[in-house]
């Protein structure tokens, strides 16, 4: 048996970067506060001392600038890791990711590779309000040419980041501020998790819960509570949003006949919509109930803690949705919110 250690999500990410940078001198880390400050969230702590200023590069607050520099460097063969202090700030560089990184290979007819990883924390933390609390994976997953990765455990964080760094395509790698301290078992030996492969994190026969990232833990908690009532939920962790592991989703839903998607982001035109479309198209005959989604409410994130808690998916809402799918509960009255999805 390979040796297993317990480390944090943050340490797992750091190990992935350090090991890959030791292996390949064309890899460098660039971003705000990654060097001398030791990382805004300490993910890159110690890396400056280890690799020097040439390979651990502090930038000004200029996301468009340093995202573009990474893209240019990747175009001619380097393998940059670009850290966004948070994915909220990536929006100022959205043009670079969507128009340049994602499209170069296609519009040049395959003349260039784009081996670049954009990484950093996304989603809500605590009481950071509307501009700092957004789960933006749907925006990036919409774009052909990008891969979108969202790990939920330290082992997956390490293995998926290593695979992302080795990939020749632009990878959007979204972590979570509130998971950086999460501990978990990670193999001590070389550990690479292939992109595009979902994993059943808890097997079950009654309902398939499709989820990823932070919502995996919300879903697992709900699954535990439901198990006390004899309801066995299968929790499928997507790990990669794009390319989506359609086979794993469809196979699980065909087994259980019921599907719930749990995502942190907004409901409209989202990853949940995509998964539900897939399930309806590919597993319609096996469905015993219409697929459901538990998502954030369709509002910008409010600051007040009671409102924030109300907006975000919770284990209680997941439990309710599962019971609804099983016909054990009536649909609740939804809060009236603006937007396209009610």
């Amino acid at each position: 048996m390979p040796e297993i250690r317990v480390i944090t999500f943050r340490e797992a990410l750091r190990e992935a970067m350090v090991e890959e940078m030791e292996r390949d001198s064309s890899i460098f880390l660039m971003g705000e506060e990654v060097g001398h400050y030791q990382g805004a969230y300490k993910v890159s702590e110690g890396m400056l001392a280890r690799f020097g200023e040439k390979r651990v590069i502090d930038t000004p607050i200029a996301e468009t600038g340093f995202a573009g520099v990474g893209i240019g460097a990747a175009m001619v063969g380097l393998r940059p890791i670009i850290e966004f202090m948070t994915w909220n700030f990536s929006l100022t560089a959205y043009d670079q990711l969507v128009n340049n990184a994602a499209k170069l290979r296609y519009m040049s007819n395959g003349q260039f590779k784009m081996p670049i990883v954009f990484r950093g924390p996304g989603g809500a933390a605590h009481a950071l309000a509307a501009q700092h609390s957004q789960a933006l994976e749907s925006l990036y997953a919409h774009v052909p040419g990008l891969k979108v990765i969202m790990p939920a455990t330290p082992a997956d964080a390490k293995g998926l980041l290593k695979a992302s760094i080795r990939d020749d395509n632009p990878v959007v790698f979204i972590e979570s501020e509130v998971m950086y301290a999460l501990k978990g078992e990670v193999p001590a030996v070389e550990h690479v998790v292939p992109l595009g492969v979902a994993e059943v994190k808890r097997p079950g026969r009654d309902v398939t819960v499709v989820t990823w990232a932070k919502m995996l833990h919300t879903s697992l908690k709900a699954a535990e509570n439901l198990a006390r009532d004899g309801i066995e939920v299968e929790v499928l962790d997507l790990r990669t949003i794009r390319p989506l592991d359609s086979e794993a989703i469809v196979a699980s839903v065909r087994r259980t006949g019921r599907c719930l998607v749990v995502q942190e982001g907004w409901p409209f035109a989202s990853v949940a919509s995509e998964v539900i479309t897939l399930v309806v198209r590919e597993a319609f005959d096996q469905l015993d109930a219409p697929p459901e989604a538990v998502t954030s409410l369709d509002v910008p994130m409010p600051y007040a803690t009671n409102l924030e808690t109300f907006v975000l998916p919770s284990p209680e809402r997941v439990v309710s949705a599962v019971r609804r799918l099983l016909g054990l509960e009536e649909a609740p009255t939804r809060p009236a919110v603006a937007g396209g999805a009610r």
């Binding site: 468009t64 600038g65 573009g68 520099v69 240019g72 460097a73 175009m75 128009n99």
Partner: peptide, 8 residues
């Protein structure tokens, strides 16, 4: 959009 790329 290509100005930072050239810098890169």
């Amino acid at each position: 959009g290509h100005v930072p790329i050239a810098a890169g």
